[in-house]
Computed example of a mutant assay.
Amino acid sequence: MTMAMLQRRANVRLPPEVNRVLYIRNLPYKITAEEMYDIFGKYGAIRQIRVGNTAETRGTAFVVYEDIFDAKNACDHLSGFNVCNRYLVVLYYQSNKAFKRIDVDKKMEDLDKLKTKYNLNDEKK
């Protein structure tokens, strides 16, 4: 990359949700990591790919790029890309949203424990 290209990149202001980690949904269940590298590697150097392998995570993957601009380029071009008659959903990974659901589940679990402890139920008398 030339110095002029690097300077232009330094002046580009990316939206706050853009980051190096992409979250991919609607993948074919039988897709391999090698196939993922073939698809996503066209947009830049990849640090890591994690393909979901449990009942809850099948059809999803995380792709971590070395460079944030490569991740943005991949997200822009691969969202809606057809792989084995499935259209990919490519999003930027946002940890605050991912953990928010876990927090809600934990709070509901804690609430249920308190209800049991104090012998409360949801029925109105």
Rank of each mutant, 00 (worst) to 15 (best):
P28N: 06
G52P: 12
I68R: 11
A74T: 10
I46R: 04
V63G: 02
T32K: 13
V89N: 12
S95H: 14
V63L: 07
V83K: 09
F40H: 03
Y65E: 05
F99M: 12
R47D: 10
Y65L: 04
N73G: 01
V64N: 10
V90Q: 10
L14F: 05
I68A: 03
Y43D: 05
L78S: 09
Q48P: 04
E66F: 05
I39Y: 00
N85P: 00
G44K: 03
G41E: 07
E56R: 15
R86A: 04
D103I: 08
I39G: 01
V83Y: 02
F40D: 03
A74H: 13
F99H: 14
L27Y: 01
E56F: 14
Y65F: 15
D38N: 13
D70T: 05
R86P: 00
R47T: 11
Q48N: 14
V63H: 06
E17G: 02
V51H: 06
F62C: 01
H77D: 09
C75G: 04
I24K: 06
R58S: 12
Y65S: 06
N11H: 07
Y65W: 10
F81E: 08
P16T: 09
L22D: 08
R50H: 10
I102V: 15
G41V: 06
N19R: 12
T54A: 10
K72L: 15
V12F: 08
Q94W: 12
A61C: 03
P28H: 06
Y23E: 08
F99I: 13
P28M: 03
E35W: 00
Y43H: 15
R58K: 14
D38H: 07
P15F: 00
Q94T: 08
R86T: 04
